[in-house]
Design a protein around this nucleic acid. Structure first.
Lengths: 167, 167
DNA sequence: GATAATGTTGATCTGATTAGTCGGGATTAT
DNA sequence: ATAATCCCGACTAATCAGATCAACATTATC
C-alpha cells in the first residue's frame, strides 16, 4: 500500500493544462501554435503531448490545422475553459470512490455517512477546479475565492508522512 | 487515457475508513472488535482488511490484541482521528502533481501559476479531510463548515463526461 | 506539382500499481 | 491443550500510466 495519493495530478493532466495555458497566452491571440513549440517550451514529450491535444480536439476544446502553417489554438475563449473541463477530458470524472461515483456509493451500517464525506470532498475540489480558467492561469491571477486559500501560510506546508513503512 | 480520476478513493482507504468508523462506534466503547466482525459488517475481504489494520496499528492509530479475546480498538479518542490521518497512512500524501509534491513543482514559463492552482486544490481538500473525524462519521454529523458544502443541491449532481471516446 | 512541415491514428511496450490471496507462525483466554 | 485470534511476508493477476513508434493524411510554399 504505497504511494497512492488522493489528489493525483497525472502527468497527462499536468501536460494538457500547461499546453492549454500556452495556447491561451499565445501572441498574437488565436495564432496556431505548433505542437513542437509547446513541447519545447513546456518540456513535454512531443508524442505524448500530441495524443493529449488530439483528445482535447475531439472534446472541442481546441482546434487544429495540419500542414505548413498548422498548429493548435483554442476552440473557445480562454475565460470559458476551466481546469475541471480539461481534467474531465483527460482523466474522466473528478471523483471516484473505489470505482464508483460517490452518489452511487452505499456504505453499510454505521459507515453510511462516509458517503456524504466524499461528496463534500468532491464539492471542495470542484470549488477550485471549476472556478479557475486557463485565462486566469495565463494572466497569473486566480479568482479571489481561490486566492484566499493561499493566504494561509499553512496551505504552503507539507504534512509529515505518518506511515513508518514509508518513512 | 481512460479513467484516472482526480479524487481517487482507493479500495484500501474506503475499507480502512469504514473499519475505523466501526471501531469508533463499538459498544461498549473501546471494546476490542474482531477483524472478522468488521469484515462481515462492512463487507470487506478479511485478509485485505487485516493488512490495512496492521498498517494503522504501526502508525499508532489502533491497537490490537491476539488470542481468544483479541481484536482491534482505537489507540486514540475518535475525536482526534481525522480522515486525513487515515488517508495519509494508507495512501501517502494527499496530493501529488505528477509524482511531485506541489511545492517542489516548478512548471516553466507562462504555466508557472499552475503551481499555485494545485496548492489551492490541496488546501481545499484538506479543509474537508482534516476537519472530519471518525467521531463525526460515527455520530453521523459532519462539522458545520463541511456540512455547508452539502447544502448546495449542485454538490449532489454528477457532471456529464465531456470525452467522446468514453461516452 | 514536388516538397517539407505538420497533425492523426492505432498499435505496442515497459514498469508500477491495485486489490487482493495464501501459508505458516506467534500469542492468548478458556 | 486447544481453539481463537492477530502477524508477517511472499505471491499474483489484471490493469494502468506514461510513453514511443510507424505509417498516413493534409496543407502552404517553391
Amino acid at each position: 500500500m504505497r504511494h497512492n495519493e488522493r489528489v493525483r495530478i497525472s502527468a497527462g493532466l499536468d501536460y494538457a493544462l500547461r499546453a492549454m495555458v500556452e495556447l491561451a497566452a499565445a501572441i498574437p491571440a488565436g495564432r496556431p501554435v505548433k505542437g513542437d513549440e509547446i513541447a519545447a517550451r513546456q518540456a513535454i514529450p512531443y508524442r505524448f503531448l500530441a495524443q493529449l491535444l488530439a483528445e482535447l480536439r475531439r472534446a472541442q476544446l481546441v482546434c487544429s490545422g495540419r500542414g505548413y502553417a498548422g498548429g493548435y489554438w483554442l476552440a473557445v475563449p480562454a475565460e470559458q475553459i476551466t481546469v475541471a473541463d480539461i481534467a474531465r477530458v483527460i482523466d474522466g470524472p473528478l471523483t471516484d470512490v473505489h470505482g464508483m461515483s460517490p452518489e452511487l456509493f452505499g456504505p453499510p451500517g454505521v459507515a453510511g455517512p462516509t458517503r456524504e464525506l466524499w461528496i463534500a470532498a468532491r464539492a471542495a475540489l470542484r470549488s477550485v477546479l471549476e472556478q479557475v480558467t486557463i485565462a486566469d492561469l495565463a494572466a497569473g491571477t486566480l479568482p479571489p475565492a481561490v486566492a484566499a486559500l493561499l493566504d494561509d501560510p499553512d496551505a504552503w506546508t507539507r504534512r509529515p508522512d505518518p506511515n513508518p513503512q514509508r518513512l
